[in-house]
């Protein structure tokens, strides 16, 4: 076995860049969320700190860092401190395999999508131990909800991703994007259904309204992060926004043709072309995030058993039938 390219330095540099990107991304997303929600609610949102209130999040982050970290007396301290880190690190690692452009992809793994999914599975673990270790009944409820919800939505999520993988015949994210080219997977009927199912379950994966059951403010006060203060809460927050960009990046690469325009495949060489591709990718991903924010500020929260019903009675049958139909189509027509 011969190892060819020692790109460990690249990975380290890229990881640092990725952490920086995650921080800026979260800061910008918090600002976007506040602005969008404000305008939907007919108020201006933050506008004092910096131009258009852009520095508001930076100030808020500073405040969070300066705040005292309160650990409840009966909490399991080590686990309590571990949970926010666990919710924050895996999405960053998963982002390393996302193909932002043809070249701008830190590590193109053959099993890229599987790698991302396995890291995403750690998110629920973080919520679970956060809720458990807080020694708070509301947090416990949030944690329990999170697990039951996780079991329900993971299946349609995987099935819908499987449809895309089956269609393109690869697990490699870069190849998935290239296989679509200009003809995005979402343009096919199977792709469209899979995309809708993925988007719904992806919102559940990020624990955002209308599926924000683990934190359900009006029922469980703040659910699993009730007891977290200061940067502990901040890390959960960062994790949530990183998860959002991760979910929409997967949707972009698997269903929306990645960095390709509709019906136009961008294959040009050089820095400029690469920049255009990255911008297209980010535009798609952030548009999906915008839709998520828009939905969050429009809909009420679903009830716990309704989410399970939705997943078991609607999403799983649809995604199964969709997968089977896609398989039959591939066999009959040849993809």
């Amino acid at each position: 076995m011969q190892i060819q390219s020692p790109n460990i330095l690249l990975i380290v540099v890229a990881a640092v860049v990725m952490v920086l990107y995650v921080f800026t991304n979260s800061a910008v997303l918090v600002w976007v969320e506040r602005k969008v929600s404000a305008h939907i609610q007919r108020r201006p949102g933050p506008f004092e700190v910096g131009p258009f209130g852009l520095l508001q999040t930076a100030i808020d982050g500073l405040k969070l860092m300066a705040k005292q970290l309160i650990i409840p007396a009966k909490a399991d301290k080590r686990i309590f401190m571990l949970a926010p880190v666990l919710s924050f690190v895996p999405p960053i690692a998963a982002l390393l395999t996302v193909p932002f452009g043809k070249v701008v992809q830190v590590q193109n793994l053959d099993i890229g999508i599987l790698f991302i999914l396995s890291l995403a599975a750690l998110n629920v673990l973080a919520i679970l131990i956060a809720g458990w270790s807080s020694a708070n009944k509301y947090s416990l409820f949030g944690a329990v909800r999170s697990v039951a919800q996780n079991i329900a939505y993971e299946i349609p999520l995987l099935l819908s991703l499987l449809t895309a993988v089956l269609w393109m015949g690869t697990l490699n994210l870069g190849e998935l994007v290239d296989a679509q080219g200009g003809f995005w997977f979402v343009f096919t009927p199977f792709g469209f259904i899979a995309f809708v199912i993925y988007f719904v379950t992806g919102m559940a994966e990020t624990n955002r309204a209308p599926f924000d059951l683990p934190e359900a403010e009006s029922e469980l006060t703040a659910g699993f992060h009730t007891e977290y203060s200061g940067m502990g809460f901040g890390l959960f927050f960062l994790g949530e926004y990183t998860n959002m960009i991760l979910v929409s990046a997967i949707a972009t690469s698997l269903f929306l043709g990645g960095y390709n325009l509709p019906f136009i495949t961008l294959n040009g060489e050089g820095i400029l072309w690469e920049l255009i591709r990255v911008l297209i990718f980010l535009a798609k991903a952030y548009f999906l995030i915008f839709v998520m924010i828009w939905m969050r500020w429009t809909f009420p929260r679903v009830r716990f058993d309704q989410l399970l019903n939705l997943c078991w009675k609607v999403l799983i049958p649809f995604s199964l039938v969709n997968l089977a139909a896609a398989a039959i189509w591939i066999k009959a027509v040849g993809g």
């Binding site: 053959d110 099993i111 599987l114 790698f115 999914l117 396995s118 890291l119 599975a121 750690l122 629920v124 673990l125 993971e154």
Partner: peptide, 12 residues
């Protein structure tokens, strides 16, 4: 592949 499955099945 097996490493990913290990995390997905065991940890997840």
């Amino acid at each position: 592949f097996i490493a990913s499955m290990q995390i997905l099945i065991y940890v997840g």
